[in-house]
Simulated assay, not measured.
Amino acid sequence: MSDQKESVGRTLRVAFMVCLACSVVVAGAAVGLKPEQIANRQLDKQRNILVIAGLANANASAAEVKRIYNEKIKARVVDLNTGRYDDTQDAARFDPLKAAQNPAASKALTGSEDIASIKRRENQTVVYLVEGDKGLETLILPVRGYGLWSTLHGFMALKKDLKTIAGFGFYQHAETPGLGGEVDNPRWKALWPGKEAFDDAGKFDITVIKGSVDPHSARAVHQVDGLAGATLTSNGVNHLLNFWLGPQGFGPYLAQLRAGGN
C-alpha cells in the first residue's frame, strides 16, 4: 500500500514539475516575444493606413510600409471636445483605446449618444495627415463601432475638400464570414472612393443602403451598396460613421479645419 502511495505521489510530483517547466517556458516566450508582437501590430496598423489612403498596396513589404509611412504620414493627437490639436502628447505613443477605458480620459456615452455602441469615447485620439506643398492632401480618421457580432475597427480617408472619400476599410472585426465579413471584400471597399461623406454645407451625408445604388439617382454620390444578407452589419457601419463624423466624434475637428483653424 505504501509503495502504491509513493508511486502516486511520485507521479503527481513529476506532473507538477512538468507543468511548472512548461509554464515557465510559455511565460518566458510570451515576455520575450512581446516587443515583436507590438512591432507587428504597429506595422499592420501603418499598412492599413497607407492602403486606405491609397499610398501602398496590401502586399507591400515591411520595409516599404515603414519607408512610405515615415515619408508621407504625419500623426497628431486631436482633442475631440475642442477639435484642436494637442501637441503636448506624443502621437506615436498615445493609445486612444486605452484612453477610452480610463474614466479620467474619456466620456461615458448616454443611450442616445452611443449610436456606435462603444460605451465610452476617448477625449483625445490620433489622426493621420498626408500633406503636400499646398497643405493637407488626405486626412485619415480612425473609426470604430459595433456590427452584428463584434466591434469593427477601421479608418476613413478624406480628400483635402474634407467631404470626398479617398478610402474606407476595417482592419479588425469578427463578423460572419461571407456575410458581415464582406466588409473586407475588395469589391465592396472599392465602392467607397469618390463618394461624398458630407454635403456642401458640411453636414454628414453618407449611407450604406439596402440593395444596390441607382447610379442615375441624385443621391448616388452619398450612397453605397449594402452588404447582401448582412443588414445588421450594414446598419453598424452607418451608425459608426454617423457617430465618428458627427458632433460626438470628429465634427468639431472637421469644423476647425474647414474654418482654417488648427
Rank of each mutant, 00 (worst) to 15 (best):
D3H: 11
D3C: 05
S7W: 10
V8R: 15
G9D: 07
R10M: 03
L12W: 09
R13W: 04
A15F: 06
F16V: 07
F16C: 05
A21I: 07
C22M: 14
V24M: 13
V26W: 14
V26P: 06
A30F: 13
A30G: 09
A30K: 14
V31Q: 15
V31L: 12
V31H: 13
P35W: 15
E36L: 13
A39L: 09
N40P: 06
Q42T: 14
Q42E: 15
L43W: 01
L43G: 02
D44C: 03
Q46S: 05
R47N: 01
N48L: 03
N48F: 14
I49C: 00
V51S: 00
I52P: 00
G54A: 01
A58Y: 08
A58Q: 14
A58I: 08
S61C: 07
V65D: 08
V65E: 01
K66D: 08
K66N: 14
K66H: 13
R67D: 13
N70G: 12
E71M: 10
K72L: 05
I73G: 01
K74Q: 11
R76M: 08
V77F: 08
D79A: 11
R84F: 15
R84I: 07
Y85N: 12
D86Y: 15
T88P: 04
Q89S: 12
D90G: 10
A91H: 14
D95A: 01
P96T: 09
K98Q: 15
A104T: 04
A105G: 01
S106C: 09
K107D: 02
T110Q: 07
E113V: 00
E113A: 03
I115S: 02
A116H: 03
N123M: 06
N123Q: 13
T125R: 04
V126P: 00
L129E: 15
G132P: 07
G132L: 05
D133V: 11
K134T: 05
G135P: 03
I140P: 05
I140R: 04
I140M: 03
L141K: 00
L141V: 01
P142E: 08
V143S: 04
R144A: 00
Y146F: 13
L148N: 10
S150H: 07
S150T: 02
L152K: 09
G154D: 10
F155I: 07
A157Q: 00
L158P: 10
K159T: 07
K163M: 04
T164V: 08
I165T: 12
G167L: 08
F168Q: 03
G169F: 12
F170M: 14
Q172I: 05
E182K: 11
V183M: 00
N185K: 02
A190V: 03
A190N: 13
L191C: 02
L191M: 12
G194L: 03
E196Q: 09
A197V: 03
F198S: 05
D199R: 13
A201P: 02
G202P: 10
K203F: 09
K203R: 15
T207N: 10
T207C: 06
I209E: 10
S212V: 15
D214K: 12
P215I: 00
A220L: 01
V221R: 04
Q223K: 03
V224F: 13
T231K: 10
T231C: 06
L232Q: 15
S234H: 01
S234Q: 08
F243I: 00
W244L: 05
W244P: 07
L245R: 01
G246Y: 04
Q248K: 06
G251L: 11
P252Q: 14
L254N: 11
L254C: 12
A255C: 04
Q256S: 10
L257Y: 11
R258Q: 05
R258A: 10
G261R: 15
